[in-house]
Design a protein around this nucleic acid. Structure first.
Lengths: 376, 376
DNA sequence: CTGTTAGCGCCTTCAG
DNA sequence: CTGAAGGCGCTAACAG
């Protein structure tokens, strides 16, 4: 097997070698591979044999230079994301992308001083990438250009962003519904465990929740806020400290992530607080381990893999559309799941208010158009 | 901003446009960008201005075709992996790779009927990739060629594979040490909760454990095995069923993954079995949630991010070495962490044997050579 | 220090 | 249906 003087260089056969071996022209080899129908059966077979014999694989860079397609997309993540959440979204993305023959370049973005930003923006402009999925919720910019300026299709997953296709969940509705359910259980004193304040989802959730509590007819309810700094169990421990210092103590806690809720529960229980006897806890995301902490965590389940799949499908459609399609916006439904960590307000607390609101309107948002392929 | 007739085509300025704008040749533009030192200050600035004015980004495919370097590596994962484990290894990989200016293509491999296999093997031969990290533990093959045949550097992470650089942990030692510690606590009746039997780590762990129990001087110990089918909490529930059907019941359980242990604990506790009063449970990996289940899980902590970082460093070194370096093999230490889920054998069980073994020899394996950059 | 030139490997008109 | 030829955009010799 011929190896180059150095590793790194692809040293295999080139199209000319195959042509010579098969006794045809390079054009015929190219056609036999890309458009078999345009080549006579005999030549097609001769070419196939030569390809197999020489172990020929077309050079991707050369092809790309000609056809201007890389069949590669970029996926931008954010390090501070919840790992279990992230892993499943990624799984959905990979499933759809690879099925459609696209490769996926993964890149973390943490706003580190412009260096990584430039890498990402350059990637958009260098022709290596045909589109991008952003899990970061932010359109990266560097040197006066943004990822958008390259004119490639962009999908923003789990976050809204100007100029991109978006795939979201009805997280705002869900968190309000959670608060409403807790209120119906007699809770009047709430604590919100916040994630990183710069995070899109954190903001949406807080905005929805505080707007709800600001409604005149929720006047009997009180909402406070504790900072975790992070979607992490450590952050949850932090919020527990804050909680323990409050007086009176809230009886209902809504966390912006399951990790936070799990950390919180562990710390307050260690301090002798009962869950849900003293305080009810509601998480967010529906990660696997919400089922295995003590007590089993009530949570808002997000359709993680479906988010990934739909994001991929939207991007692929935009890439393959004959002309730039209009920006699409999808909303996938999350699901409130009350379990052992939530219960009625403790007896000592304020008496349950009369039924707080008219029957909450059913989920209005539904996924539009391309249903994510759920089958394998 | 000029847009092509269709999206997907990079329609920005080309090097010739920049050259014209700056009034120099294309060679000078190329040099000013790649080797600024070789160009006079004045021209360098004129080129820089033209580049900025036109928003020029070199076309990656064309460059790649010339220089035969893509600065891209492939990372092959396996879907069935534990997500929290995987996420952190990936984090380590990304950190080192991006710092060194490499892009990372991520691809799941699940042996799906040869289609994905061909994609992966082709990638190795098409020049898009300069090397690969395999988290799958298997060298993918298709149509008579394997990923190895391309002659590119390959790193096998967390699994041994012929012909690749490997980065492993001392998992075999650790699991035996765990058994020894449990024996020292008086346990004589053991159950191993197996992961997927085709998995490399599963096999190593089982092999080490069963070899230990087969030693003549461990004759008083008994080891059985329950199948989880998977590194998952669901798998753990399955093994719990098996456990509950055993008679007499083992008093010490060693799981091949924390997820399995967590699922197991939940199910047996629901059945009225105390942990560790009736049965001690030892997990494997040290995932975050091992700290948040009930009781806190004893486990063997793997240096997940460090594994990723070291894997990346090894690969980069191999890629950038002037000539093919010899295959390297690194072993990173894992750490046994006994906590609340393990305790003395219950009183009813066989009396503690006299101290089982001579003081276990200290960890002999250490990471050789390139210490993973731990900073930032 | 700068410009001219010759491909890298492939695909795709354009003739035949 | 097949072959010849040009060029995608860039860089690295080689001259000057």
């Amino acid at each position: 097997m011929v190896r180059g003087k150095q590793n790194g260089a692809a040293r295999g056969a080139r199209i000319g070698d195959v042509a010579r071996e098969a006794g045809v022209s390079t054009a015929t080899v190219s056609r036999a591979l890309a458009h078999p129908a345009q080549v006579s059966k005999e030549l097609r077979e001769r070419v196939g044999a030569a390809v197999a014999k020489l172990g020929y694989t077309p050079n991707a860079a050369a092809r790309q230079l000609r056809v201007k397609r890389s069949r590669t997309v970029l996926v931008v993540t954010r390090r501070r994301w919840s790992a279990p959440f992230f892993a499943e979204v990624l799984r959905g993305l990979d499933a759809e992308l690879s099925a459609a023959g696209y490769a996926m370049v993964l890149a973390n973005f943490d706003g580190d001083g412009g260096n990584r930003s430039r890498q990402l923006v350059d990637m958009m402009f260098s022709g290596t990438i045909e589109g991008a999925v952003m899990l970061s919720g932010i359109v990266v910019a560097a040197e006066g250009r943004t990822m958008l300026d390259a004119g490639l299709p962009l999908v923003s997953l789990c976050a809204a962003a100007e100029g991109t296709h978006t795939v979201l969940t009805n997280e705002a509705e869900c968190i309000v519904e959670g608060a409403r359910r807790l209120a119906a259980l007699g809770h009047t004193d709430f604590l919100y465990l916040a994630g990183p304040p710069s995070n899109y989802n954190e903001r949406v959730r807080w905005a929805a929740l505080s707007a709800f509590f600001a409604e005149p007819r929720q006047a009997g309810l009180r909402l406070r806020r504790a900072e975790s700094g992070d979607f992490s169990t450590d952050g949850g421990l932090l919020t527990a400290q804050a909680f323990l210092g409050l007086s009176p103590r809230p009886t209902a806690v809504i966390a912006s992530a399951d990790e936070i809720a799990i950390g919180f529960m562990k710390a307050v229980r260690a301090a002798g607080i009962g869950v849900p006897s003293d305080v009810s806890v509601l998480g967010f995301d529906g990660i696997e381990f919400a089922d295995f902490c003590e007590p089993v965590l009530s949570t808002i389940r997000q359709p993680r893999e479906a988010l990934g799949r739909l994001g991929a499908r939207v991007l692929i459609e935009a890439i393959e559309a004959p002309s730039l399609p209009p920006l699409s916006h999808h909303v996938l439904p999350s699901r409130l799941d009350f379990r052992a960590s939530t219960g009625p307000a403790p007896a000592g607390a304020a008496a349950p208010r009369p039924q707080a609101a008219p029957a909450p309107k059913r989920k209005s948002a539904r996924a539009r158009v391309p249903a994510p392929a759920e089958g394998r």
